[in-house]
């Protein structure tokens, strides 16, 4: 609780937290918040020439190429993007951390096997792997989330692995051993807190990359299936009209950037709050 209070004291962090809350609320309460059905194509949503409408009094954020309300699509899109950005990215971070820490702390044959596996995964083009996996398994939101997690844990594992090795070679870990502290306790009580900053940075950076990876997959037809909206696929569907209908890319783009920035700010602030060495020296 004291940590939360300290976080709220920083103005930018408070705003970031507020934005995250709004996105979460939008995702949960989409049916009530959205002015229209996100899949409904309005006749009056297009001009007589068939061009989408810019933002106006009826459609606050304008309409898309098929005459659907952009605001409703962005609100519903929050569901998909949150699941991809938070859940699948979270799974990637957990797997990556577990693999990296185990390989770095235990070393030996287990460490070698885990790291060779990571190298193997890295050698595959991530996109190709995702397409292959998504094509084999019936594409649905949850499958896409799992596929993205499977592709994204690799870099995290690599980074955490080298961090773990550098921290466990420090003197204080040797001291813990001489005191008789057990290996799991050293791992959880002494190593993990030092890994936290790295994990937080990767977790927050991962949000924007995973949201965009989902968009790429949607674009290629193996992601979230239309007409279900996601921030990524809204951008991809309309990117060719960027010059004539800028709002179609601008609003979902801002939504993604703001989400990723917010998580980043909160992550940074959390790292500082949890680090006792940054508090007053005497």
């Amino acid at each position: 609780m004291t940590v939360l209070k300290a976080l709220l004291k920083r103005k930018t962090v408070a705003i970031a937290l507020l934005y995250i809350l709004i996105v979460v609320a939008a995702a949960i309460f989409a049916p009530w918040l959205a002015p229209y059905d996100p899949a409904k194509q309005f006749f009056e949503g297009l001009t007589l020439e068939g061009a989408p409408l810019p933002p106006n009094a009826d459609y606050w954020l304008g309409t898309d190429l098929l005459g659907r309300d952009l605001l409703s699509r962005v609100i519903y899109g929050a569901q998909t993007s949150l699941i991809i950005g938070v859940v699948s990215n979270g799974i990637a971070v957990v797997i990556g951390t577990l693999v990296g820490v185990t390989a770095g702390f235990v070393r030996g044959w287990l460490g070698s096997v885990l790291m060779r596996l990571t190298d193997l995964m890295m050698a595959f083009p991530a996109l190709l792997l995702a397409i292959a996996l998504a094509a084999i398994l019936q594409p649905s939101l949850w499958i896409v989330a799992m596929v993205i997690a499977m592709v994204n844990w690799v870099q995290i594992a690599r980074v955490i692995y080298s961090e773990t090795i550098s921290i466990s070679s420090k003197d204080f870990v040797a001291v813990e051993r001489t005191i008789g502290v057990s290996a799991p306790r050293i791992l959880f009580s002494h190593l993990l807190p030092h890994l936290l900053p790295t994990i937080l940075v990767w977790a927050t950076l991962g949000i924007s990359t995973t949201v965009l990876l989902e968009a790429t997959l949607s674009f290629l037809g193996v992601g979230v299936q239309p007409p279900k909206p996601s921030w990524g696929n809204i951008i991809f569907e309309s990117q060719t009209y960027f010059t004539s209908a800028v709002w179609l890319v601008l609003f979902p783009g801002i939504a993604i950037i703001a989400l990723s920035l917010s998580f980043n700010l909160v992550g940074d602030a959390l790292r500082d709050e949890l680090d006792p060495t940054l508090k007053g020296r005497s």
């Binding site: 003197d171 204080f172 001291v175 813990e176 002494h190 030092h194 680090d275 006792p276 060495t277």
Partner: peptide, 8 residues
């Protein structure tokens, strides 16, 4: 180096 900086 011998003291874990994150512990009191």
């Amino acid at each position: 180096a011998a003291l874990n900086a994150r512990k009191s």
